[in-house]
Each structure stands twice: as structure tokens, then as C-alpha cells.
Write a protein that binds this DNA or RNA. Structure first.
Length: 757
DNA sequence: CGTCTAACTTAATCAGTGT
DNA sequence: ACACTGATTAAGTTAGACG
């Protein structure tokens, strides 16, 4: 299948890459055969602002999936075993081999039917579950919250019609629920009869009136308050528009609402003030025109703006960008995330004090959120400590696309969730591309060239690999692979010997550097196609017991010490079913640099700002005694997890064994295991859930390796600090170790049933 | 082999924190 | 007030599981 994909140049789906087709097309510099006319498939490798030809050599390793763009006419044809010939958006030409992704991607999670049912049930009620809901569901399903989040993302993208607001969705197909969920009358404009209870920062959800599970918490003017405490949102209704036709073939945009006047909660806290600021800042404080709107068809604003809207100040970006037509009905969405919120211009009357946002999501739902509302909706912002940032930054400079194993290991050592590490890298790549090895001014450009092996290689090159990579071995334990520096992408440069690519085999091709360097846009130039200094093999280096002369080493360690590939004894790609709560206590690794520092130096203990588990703890505490989320869903939707179990305390379910909050069990486990057990080679490519265990013994700290291999190592990395669990009672509610670690421990238990399913 | 979908990406944007 | 950056979204792609 891999080869199929690779050899299928050009793109099998479209004659033209959609991105390319919209962008400036520049001549392809590759020796295409037949000659490239720029129309078949590619060269979408360049950033869309200016698809200029590559100018040098860049290496990226461990690429994910998306940034890979097929490279047309890649000559010579990819040798057997190579999975992809691709160019990422930075212009990096990469070849990945075999089951490669193994080690890059998280192992695919196979959801049980009961889990799917539960997720589906929730989705039908609320396609935008907040963090609290996601966490709770994740806990009950025995999967990581991040998996729940991803599931919803995919679901929204693929099955929008199944959401309450989607065409044919609940709003339209399901019988109206009682009062608070009733589809409001088509026309409405009344002030809420009652004021919502004043927002209370971090008010424990448990104190809120019961709300049907998954149901967006909101207030519909005219209904009694009480349902909105957890995730207070308020829905306003607006005059429905008669217009219903849309030019595109897509389903009509969800209905829109009118805004009414309201009574508001007082603005008391700084938070509230900030909210007001934000709210009153209509139109958009950033731009006179919403950039999206400005590029789209602008339709007349139907809102009773005051003064009358000319369509130029701030908004109505509420409509889907394809056709910003007036609303056609009514839809409800609750618990919206952040992104889909669009400011509504000319909101009349002006938002009352205390209300945080008057917004319209992309579905056309007008929503007002109040107070600290986001509480329960958004994950609490994680405040990374300087030391954590340093570590992340160090890794980023070596490899902006860390694989799952690397992310997990780093996460563990930093004491944060893997999903947070992933997000950090996403944001980093988007905002500081130049700091990646391939970016201009990045490591490649800024670090002083070291001896030989860091020299910029000759600028031209495009040869077939002299040797085929060792046949991809599924699930080959990284620990058995040749050593590779931490964070450094493992790849192959044509002309070098194989051997270094075992962990995350990638192959880099070099292309003729382009003289073109100027860019039309004002944006920073795309990451330079700079040759990564340490990409060049060095006899000196390869002599160090490296299997091949092609061994590529990162700067900073040209000499003798070649750290072992961090390698996850548990194999790249082994994704524990559960991930740690924010700032979890990481499993103490005897070899962790963190521990060493903590023990030896009495670490700084900056009271980590860690959002603290407080909220989570509270939620967990609140959870006790409350009905299962799944049970609530089932009750509310009629959908019942097939194999029954409402995932309740099913003794046999690993999911429950993995539940955090039962320190005693964990302690017992730890004690019985004598902590970090030795994992052993990663089992293989079996579907996830299993979560092999990260082995720690003997393996150097990831951070230590990063710092050792990076310039930033000058900045002594300090341990995560005392942390998060330094929080009294709440701390006791937090799992003493991350869920993933806990899960891993479970997996190691003799007789462990193994990954659920 | 085709379909479904988990995992992943970029891009845009919202929003909390700190200066 | 503003910069920075964590969190979330949509949209699109890749690739593993399964019929």
C-alpha cells in the first residue's frame, strides 16, 4: 500500500493539488520524467505564499502525515521498501520507509463498540463537549481525553449531520426535549426572565443543577436558570431568515438567532472585566474586517444593528465561509470551544456587564457566555515553566516533528500530558518555523558549524539510495536499533549506508539549491532549504560503532558520546490508552534527569503555575456519587452501549482499573512492581490499547539527551518542580502517577489481560 | 481491495498570562 | 494595551483495521 501511494504520482485524488491550484505556481525544479508542467500533483511542497523552488537541503524527520506532499517525478523511482517520497511544506524532501510510521504515529486505537456508542450518543447531544465532559467520558471509557477530543474532531468533520445543529441533526430530527432543550420559537427577542446565577470562578460543576449529560448547558431566554452553571452559555434567538437557498451543494447553514436584551450578572472579577473588554470590543478589535469575511462573499447583515451595519465592521462572519447567507432556522449548540466563535457585529443591545462573549459560531449559533464560563469548556491553560519550555525548545530545534514515543517520553519527564506536548509542537511549528532545523536561522543556520559532520553538504544532489534500507521490521524494538541522538530525526541521506534509520527511518534527498531567495510577501521567508550541518556523515562519527558511515549525528555531539536513541523501550508508537491529567506526577524514573536534579539539588521548586489539578480534582470528587456520564447519555438519548455496560464499574474492564484517583491501588501496583519494570521489546503492531510500557531503567533522560545535543544545554534544565501535586487535598485526588504510566504498569502486570478489546 | 476512521497536519482564531 | 502562547476549531491527508 505504501508503494502504491508512492508510485502513484501524481496525486491519485486530484489532478491539481487544491492548495497549489490556489497559489502562485512556480516552475518545478525537479528533474521530472516526463518533464513537469506543474500541473500534475505537485510541488505543493513550498509554502503556499510562495512556492519557490528549494534552495538547499533540509532535513526533517519523523514527519507526521499531513505535511507530506507528494513529489512528482521524483527520480529515480523510489526503491522497494521506501514508503513515501514527499516534500513537506517547508520544502523538505523526505523518503520514509516501510512501516515507518511505526514510531512516528501513535498506534491506532481500536474503539470497542460500546465506546463508540457512548461517543456517538454524546455527539448527538453535543458535538462540542467541553474539557470536563471529555475528561469524564474519557475516564469512563478508559481512553485518553485527547483521544476523545480527536474522535470528536473527526466526527464533526465527517458526520456533521449527526450533530444536533447539523442538517437532519437532533434539532431537526429528534423530538424536542423538555423545556430547557426545546427548540425555541422561531422568533424571539425577550430578555431572560431570570438572571443566571452570577458566574463563580471555578464553581465546581458538581454544585450545578443537574443537566442532561452531554447536553449543552445554556440558557434560552424564557426558561428558568439553573441549567447553565456548569458551562454557562446563553442562547439568544433571532428572527429567522426566510432565505434558505444556498449556491453551494453543501447543506444549508444552521439557523441563526436573534439577539435580545438581557439581564446580566455583575462584573466583579478581573476576569469579568476582561470579558467585558473582549465583549464590548465589537467589532473585532483586531481588524476592521474579518479576514475570512473579507475573502468571502459578503451578504447583507440581517441583524438589527445599531447603527445600521454596513457589513464592514467586524462581522457576520458567522456564516460558513462558502456562502454567508442569512440564517434559515434555529440551531442550538452549547459548550462551544473557542475557535468557532465569531464576533457578532452591531450586537444590540450592548452586552451586559459580566457577559463574556456575544458570539456566533460557524454554525450560526449566537451564544453568550458568561463569567469564567469557559470553565468546563476549555482546558485550563497550562503554564509551562521555563525549564519545560527549554526542554521543548531544545527538542524542537532538533526535530519539529517528534513521534509519539518521543512526545510521550518528553511529556513524562516534563510532567505534562503528551497531548500538551503535541499541541505545543503544533503551535511552535506554526509560529516559529525558523527555529526548526530546517528553518532559516534555525539550528542549522545558527549553530556554529562543527567539524566535518556539520558542514553544509554540497548543494546538489539527487541520487537513488545506494543501499536499500534494512527491510522495515515492524515493531522492531527501538532499543535494539543503532543509537541515534535524541530528538534527532532518523533518516537516510542517499549515498550513505543504512543503519541509522531504524528508529524512524527517513531518507532525505538533496536538490539543486535555488538562486531564488526573495519572497514577495512580507512574511518571514519560508524555512530555508538549508543543509543541516549535522546531516553530513563523518568518518569520525561513524567510527563510533555506528553501523554505517551514513550515520547522521546532531551537532553538539560529534565526539565520542553517542547517546542511545531514547527509544522507547516500549517502542515508538505505543500509545497508552490513558494520558496524564494536566501536570501529573510523572512516574519516577530512576534514571530521569528530573529525579537526579531534584534529589541532588533540592530543585528550585518554583511553585509551578500548573493550572493545578484543582479543577480536575474537584471534578473527580464531584464525580463520585454522580451517575455515570455514559449512563446519563444513555438515559437521555436512548442509545445504550451495546455490549451493555454503560461502562459502569465493570470489574473486568481495564478502563476502570485505570481510573485515576485510586492511589491505593496504584501504590500497590508500584510496590509490587518495584517501579518501572523493564518492558521489553515492543510487542508489535497490534492495535493500541495496550500500551507497552516505557522503560526507564538505564535509559538516559530524554531531556538530558536533548540538552546534551542542543545548544540550549547551556541552560541547565531544571526539573519540573515540585509541583503540581503540591496542592493539598486536591493533590491527593490526583493520580500519583500519570494515567498512561499507570496504564502501562497495568499492562505489565502478570496476567494482565492486555489491551482491552 | 475498498471502506471506514484514528492520527496527524496546517491555518486561523480564541483567550489566559505576563509585561 | 499588547505580546506571547496554550487551547480549540475546520479542513484535509495518511494509514491501520476490517469486511
Amino acid at each position: 500500500m505504501c508503494r502504491r501511494s508512492l508510485l502513484a504520482n501524481p496525486s491519485p485524488k486530484e489532478g491539481l493539488d487544491p492548495v497549489v491550484s490556489e497559489s502562485v505556481r512556480t516552475p518545478c525544479l525537479f528533474p521530472c520524467e516526463p518533464p513537469c508542467d506543474g500541473k500534475h500533483g505537485l510541488c505543493s511542497c513550498q509554502p503556499r505564499e510562495a512556492r519557490l523552488p528549494p534552495t538547499g537541503i533540509v532535513m526533517e524527520g519523523n514527519l507526521g502525515a499531513a505535511p507530506l506532499r507528494r513529489l512528482h517525478g521524483m527520480p529515480p523511482p523510489p526503491p522497494d521498501g521506501w514508503k513515501h517520497a514527499a516534500v513537506d511544506r517547508s520544502g523538505v524532501v523526505v523518503f520514509t520507509v516501510g512501516p515507518v510510521a511505526t514510531g512516528s504515529r501513535r498506534r491506532r486505537l481500536v474503539l470497542r463498540l460500546s465506546q463508540k456508542d457512548a461517543l456517538q450518543a454524546l455527539f448527538q447531544q453535543n458535538p462540542y463537549p467541553g474539557i470536563a465532559t471529555r475528561e469524564r467520558l474519557a475516564r469512563e471509557l478508559g481512553i485518553a481525553e485527547s483521544r476523545v477530543q480527536v474522535w470528536f474532531q473527526n466526527r464533526r468533520a465527517r458526520h456533521p449531520q449527526q450533530s444536533p445543529s447539523g442538517p437532519g441533526g437532533a434539532a431537526a430530527t429528534t423530538p424536542p426535549a423538555p423545556e430547557d432543550r426545546r427548540t425555541p420559537p422561531a422568533v424571539q427577542s425577550t430578555s431572560p426572565p431570570l438572571r443566571p446565577s452570577p458566574p463563580q470562578e471555578s464553581m465546581p460543576p458538581s454544585a450545578a443543577p443537574a443537566a442532561p449529560f452531554g447536553a449543552p448547558a445554556f440558557w434560552v431566554p424564557g426558561t428558568a436558570p439553573g441549567v447553565c452553571v456548569g458551562q454557562p452559555l446563553m442562547i439568544f434567538m433571532v428572527q429567522p431568515s426566510p432565505v434558505a437557498l444556498r449556491p453551494s451543494g453543501k447543506p444549508p447553514p444552521p439557523a441563526q438567532y436573534g439577539v435580545t436584551d438581557l439581564a446580566l450578572p455583575p462584573a466583579s472579577s478581573r476576569h469579568a472585566q476582561m470579558c467585558r473588554r473582549s465583549l464590548l470590543a465589537n467589532p473585532s478589535p483586531k481588524e476592521g474586517l474579518d479576514p475570512v469575511v473579507s475573502e468571502s462573499v459578503r451578504t447583507p447583515c440581517l441583524f438589527p444593528c445599531e447603527p445600521p451595519c454596513d457589513g464592514k465592521h467586524g462581522l457576520c462572519s458567522c456564516q460558513p465561509r462558502e456562502a454567508r447567507l442569512p440564517p434559515t432556522g434555529i440551531v442550538m449548540e452549547g459548550n462551544l470551544g473557542a475557535a468557532p466563535l465569531r464576533r457578532l457585529h452591531g450586537m444590540p443591545p450592548p452586552p451586559p456587564d459580566g457577559w463574556k462573549h456575544a458570539a456566533v459560531d460557524r454554525s450560526g449559533v449566537v451564544v453568550f457566555t458568561v463569567g469564567p464560563v469557559a470553565t468546563g469548556s476549555r482546558r485550563r491553560r497550562l503554564v509551562l515553566r521555563l525549564s519545560q519550555k527549554d526542554a521543548l525548545q531544545a527538542l524542537f530545534q532538533q526535530n519539529p516533528y517528534p513521534g509519539i514515543a518521543t512526545r510521550e517520553r518528553l511529556a513524562r519527564e516534563l510532567g505534562i500530558a503528551e497531548s500538551r506536548v503535541q499541541v505545543w509542537f503544533q503551535n511552535r511549528r506554526a509560529r516559529h518555523p525558523q527555529q526548526s532545523p530546517s528553518g532559516p536561522g534555525g539550528a542549522a543556520a545558527t549553530t556554529p558549524p562543527a567539524p566535518e559532520d556539520r558542514r553544509t553538504p554540497p548543494a546538489v544532489q539527487s541520487t537513488s539510495p545506494p543501499l536499500r534500507p534494512s527491510p522495515p521490521q515492524e515493531s522492531m524494538p527501538p532499543s535494539a536499533a543503532p543509537a541515534a541522538p535524541f530528538g534527532a530525526p532518523a533518516f537516510w541521506v542517499p549515498g550513505t549506508a543504512p543503519g541509522v534509520c531504524v528508529g524512524q527511518p527517513l531518507m532525505i534527498f538533496m536538490v539543486q539549491p535555488s538562486p531564488v531567495a526573495l519572497r514577495p510577501s512580507g512574511k518571514p521567508p519560508p524555512p530555508a532549504q538549508v543543509a543541516v550541518p549535522w546531516a553530513v556523515s563523518s568518518p569520525a562519527v561513524t567510527a563510533l560503532g555506528q553501523p554505517g558511515q551514513g550515520a547522521i549525528l546532531p551537532p553538539a555531539q560529534p565526539e565520542a558520546h553517542i547517546p542511545r536513541w531514547p527509544g522507547s523501550p516500549y517502542g515508538e508508537g505505543a500509545a497508552p490508552p490513558l494520558e496524564p491529567q494536566p501536570q501529573p506526577r510523572s512516574l519516577p524514573s530512576p534514571t530521569s534527569l528530573l529525579d537526579g536534579l531534584l534529589a541532588a539539588a533540592g530543585a528550585p521548586a518554583s511553585p509551578g503555575p500548573s493550572p493545578g489539578p484543582s479543577a480536575v480534582a474537584v471534578r473527580q470528587a464531584a464525580l463520585a456519587g454522580t451517575p455515570s456520564l455514559v449512563e446519563q447519555i444513555s438515559a437521555a438519548t436512548g442509545i445504550h452501549a451495546t455490549p451493555g455496560p454503560s461502562l459502569g464499574p465493570c470489574a473486568g474492564e481495564r478502563a476502570h482499573l485505570a481510573l485515576p484517583g485510586s492511589p491505593s491501588v496504584q501504590d500497590a501496583l508500584l510496590a509490587s512492581l518495584g517501579i518501572p519494570g523493564s518492558p521489553g521489546p515492543f510487542p508489535g503492531s497490534s492495535p493500541v490499547v495496550a500500551g507497552a510500557h516505557p522503560a526507564f531503567p538505564g535509559s538516559p533522560s530524554l531531556i538530558e539527551e536533548i540538552l546534551a545535543a542542543t545548544a540550549t544545554r547551556d541552560t541547565p534544565w531544571s526539573p519540573p518542580g515540585p509541583p503540581a501535586w503540591d496542592e493539598g487535598v486536591e493533590a491527593t485526588l490526583e493520580a500519583p502517577l500519570s494515567e498512561e504510566d499507570y496504564q502501562a504498569l497495568l499492562d505489565m502486570l502478570p496476567g494482565s489481560p492486555g489491551p482491552g478489546a
